[in-house]
């Protein structure tokens, strides 16, 4: 049984822009993986077609079916984690084995307050 996980230091899930995130990527696989990649990405959800952007990608050189690798990523200034009426911007770490045959994803929040930015709005839609 394949098992992937991402452990972030102190189980932190909220980060401020520019903060460095440290953690460990772990996997237990039945077969030797051809590639293991950790992506830092944001994607959108809502009324529009989804957009995805991979901000940083770490490729682990490994030939072991069970392994763990530390990582350290400095988060960018933006975009902030956001939810409005039409779109949400969601940040995530994603561990991918063999171009997506196995995947584990962990959402994080990026904003100065550590909270997702939300809007209070009038009911006007243009």
């Amino acid at each position: 049984m394949n098992n992937l996980s991402i452990e972030i230091q102190d189980n932190q899930t909220a980060f401020t822009p520019g903060e460095t995130m440290q953690g460990t990527a772990q996997w237990q696989l039945d077969d030797i993986p051809k590639s293991v990649t950790l992506n830092l990405l944001w994607y959108t959800q809502g009324k529009g077609t989804e957009d995805v952007s991979i901000v940083e990608s770490i490729h682990f050189d490994t030939y072991a079916p069970t392994d763990q690798k530390p990582f350290s990523i400095t988060l960018p200034n933006g975009p902030y984690s956001f939810s409005g009426k039409l779109l949400s911007i969601i940040w995530a770490l994603e561990l991918i084995v063999d171009k997506g045959s196995e995947c584990h994803r962990q959402e994080i929040t990026l904003s100065p307050t550590g909270q997702e930015i939300t809007i209070n709005t009038s009911s006007a839609t243009v």
């Binding site: 959800q45 809502g46 939810s83 409005g84 009426k85 039409l86 949400s88 969601i90």
Partner: peptide
């Protein structure tokens, strides 16, 4: 407003 990601009619 309901968060876009929570909207049951969001594309995903």
């Amino acid at each position: 407003a309901m968060k876009a990601r929570d909207n049951p009619f969001a594309i995903h």
